[in-house]
Design a protein around this nucleic acid. Structure first.
Lengths: 199, 199
DNA sequence: CCCATATCTTGACAGCGTTCATATCGCTCT
DNA sequence: AGAGCGATATGAACGCTGTCAAGATATGGG
């Protein structure tokens, strides 16, 4: 692959890179195949050698968003020590990371979910983040910090709550600042009184 | 206004009607101004006498969706009697109605939230449904069915949970059938043991 | 060294949102 | 009743979009 070559060399990756940037900056609805191609310095139809569709490119962008979210959550879950307070803080950190991604990168977050996921390859629960959440909740339960009988299905409740708040705040239906209060409320409903005293 | 007139008479309403139908059927992304106009039997540019933009028309559609959701929730909240079990059932019915709307009308639900809301006139908390949810939770709290200290901010937690689940199920990330388990989990985390025994 | 193949370009097409000049309707004022 | 005027609809046009077919070009294996 030469320097300034007729062939690009890694067009697919470059296209996704630029597309991610444009989705981030303008929102996925305003992103144009032609615009992405021009930004890469390539003809519009060149993209069709690597993606079947504009939709396919945007699906790749959505996958990047999912990956970024997973990365943030993994980082958040890797903090803290081994005591009860740290276990509680870990759940809080995961939830905060989820909301934080939506807050910091609203357009990419919105695009990471939605219709472009339906073609998605990997299952939902295949996500590493989902496993991390489950492990964190299991840990809390094992420590007796969760109210009795609450563990089964709790991962979906937590996920729904955090995901729903992200969407609501993203739509301007409530302030991001309400996020802390939301997580407080979530913890109050989940944890035992003793755990709340520790937190 | 004559029968088969050059003038339409109520074009704005007719356009929104058809647009709602097309959003329902095809999803808002595939709806075309020209297509809506053609379905109404009118020239594409005729719409611009009533809407500044395609976006303005879609905003009107989004508002219809919000209204429909409000209507469903109002209906759900109007059921049941005056005892504790009915109060609990009322909350459940509201949540089920919310999820049910997303399930029955996925495209309209998805469109009712999202970017087209940012131009929306009425505030979020101005919604009648939000007031209904608050009243229902107040009722539960007054009856002593809510765990102590949980009431403040609980409406946002409940809303987020239900809204988030709707979005997750809509994206195919979990089955709609999990909705019942989700609501079970939510109730278990909110209600006192005595209340759970009644429910 | 040469050719098969993958890659990129050019040019074209249909469909989109939107605008502008023009035509028509229906109401009001005299 | 008739004229005129504002609201409403039309038709043609523009630039932009995604997508495709045909041709040009570079790369890697014989």
């Amino acid at each position: 692959m030469s320097r300034t070559s007729y062939h690009h060399g890694a067009l697919a990756e470059a296209l996704v890179d630029v597309a991610v940037g444009q989705v981030r900056a303008q929102g996925s609805e305003r992103v144009t195949l032609r615009g992405v191609a021009q930004a890469v310095g390539v003809s519009p139809s060149a993209a069709y050698n690597h993606f079947a569709d504009k939709d396919a490119l945007l699906t790749a962008v959505a996958l990047r968003g999912q990956t970024e979210l997973d990365r943030r959550i993994a980082t958040a879950a890797a903090t803290g020590g081994d005591d009860d307070a740290a276990a509680i803080a870990r759940l809080r950190a995961i939830a905060t990371a989820y909301i934080g991604f939506a807050h910091d990168d609203p357009n990419l977050f919105r695009h990471a979910f939605g219709p472009h996921l339906k073609h998605g390859s990997s299952g939902p629960h295949a996500s590493e983040a989902y496993a991390t959440l489950n492990a964190t909740l299991d840990d809390l339960d094992a420590r007796g910090l969760l109210r009795p009988g609450l563990r089964p299905g709790l991962e979906l409740v937590v996920w729904s709550t955090v995901h729903g708040f992200a969407g609501i705040a993203l739509d301007g239906l409530c302030d991001w600042e309400a996020g802390d209060a939301l997580l407080d409320g979530m913890q109050r409903s989940m944890l035992t009184d003793a755990a709340l005293a520790v937190a």
